[in-house]
């Protein structure tokens, strides 16, 4: 799966969790860039991404998610493992 494909899926997950019809995510997008991405929705987003891809992030992985690109890269790494 390419980063573009994962980014497209993750964008849909974010739209669903954040209840936003319009949301443009890029690999550089951070929580500070998205209205409503707070600590609660952060956990909901991680949960939704894990459930969607049937993967489980480790603590030392999630704390290194500085932006959406890091999250997508980790998903790709887990799917290809």
């Amino acid at each position: 799966m390419t980063q573009e494909e994962v980014l497209a899926h993750v964008t849909e997950i974010f739209k669903n969790v954040l209840k936003k019809e319009q949301l443009n995510l890029t690999p550089e997008t951070t929580a500070a860039d998205v209205d409503g991405w707070d600590s609660l929705t952060h956990v909901m987003l991680i949960d939704a991404v894990e459930n969607h891809y049937k993967v489980k992030f480790k603590l030392n992985e999630v704390i290194k998610f500085n932006n959406v690109g890091d999250l997508c890269a980790c998903v790709i790494k887990k799917l290809s493992a």
Binding site: T30, A31, A32, D38, S39, L40, H42, V43, I46, L59, V62, I63, F65, N66
Partner: peptide, 11 residues
């Protein structure tokens, strides 16, 4: 190191 609220939420 990132947003403190997110780091704490992760933990």
């Amino acid at each position: 190191e990132g947003l403190s609220s997110m780091l704490k939420a992760n933990a």
